[in-house]
């Protein structure tokens, strides 16, 4: 259908991102925010940070999943309209990182919701985060 092709084209040209912190130490968060600012400026690629899960195509998750946050990110994931993609940013979001055996931490994001792209680093540089989004776009354009 034409409308679906237009929607798919628009999604690839301008992915809208929801950023969630599930218990991160803030360093990945400030690097995600730094990616928006003049030095890196992801908006020139059409990537926008959106405050609501209802508007988002991509969920960028930073931090190890704490016991408190697990239920919340599951709910946010369900609120996001299909098709949706998840990027796990930072070592903690991948495996729990340095917090692996802390009692308040469940582990990586993929223990709770499915993840499409992993961006390693503690914290990853803004360049690496942008590269992660580009990889996601490539993956989606090849049909997931």
């Amino acid at each position: 259908m034409l409308i679906q092709r237009i929607a798919a084209w628009a999604r690839l040209r301008s992915p809208w991102i929801l950023h969630i912190n599930t218990g991160a130490c803030n360093s990945c968060d400030i690097e995600v925010l730094a990616a928006l600012t003049p030095r890196f400026d992801v908006e020139r690629f059409g990537i926008l940070l959106k405050p609501s899960p209802r508007h988002a195509d991509v969920i960028a998750i930073t931090g190890p999943v704490t016991r408190q946050a697990a239920e919340r990110i599951r709910r946010v994931y369900e609120q996001t309209p299909d098709p949706k993609f998840v990027i796990a940013i930072g070592s903690c979001a991948i495996s729990g990182g340095v917090f692996q055996d802390c009692y308040g931490v469940i582990g990586g994001v993929d223990k709770v919701i499915p993840v499409d792209v992993y961006v390693p680093g503690c914290p990853p540089r803004p360049d690496a985060i942008i590269y992660g989004v580009v990889k996601l776009v490539e993956k989606v354009s090849k049909g997931g």
């Binding site: 218990g23 991160a24 931090g63 408190q68 055996d101 802390c102 931490v105």
Partner: peptide
């Protein structure tokens, strides 16, 4: 508060 509680003090002494 407490959504970011990870249990660092306990982990520090381990």
């Amino acid at each position: 508060l407490g959504y970011v509680h990870r249990g660092i003090e306990k982990a520090l002494s381990e």
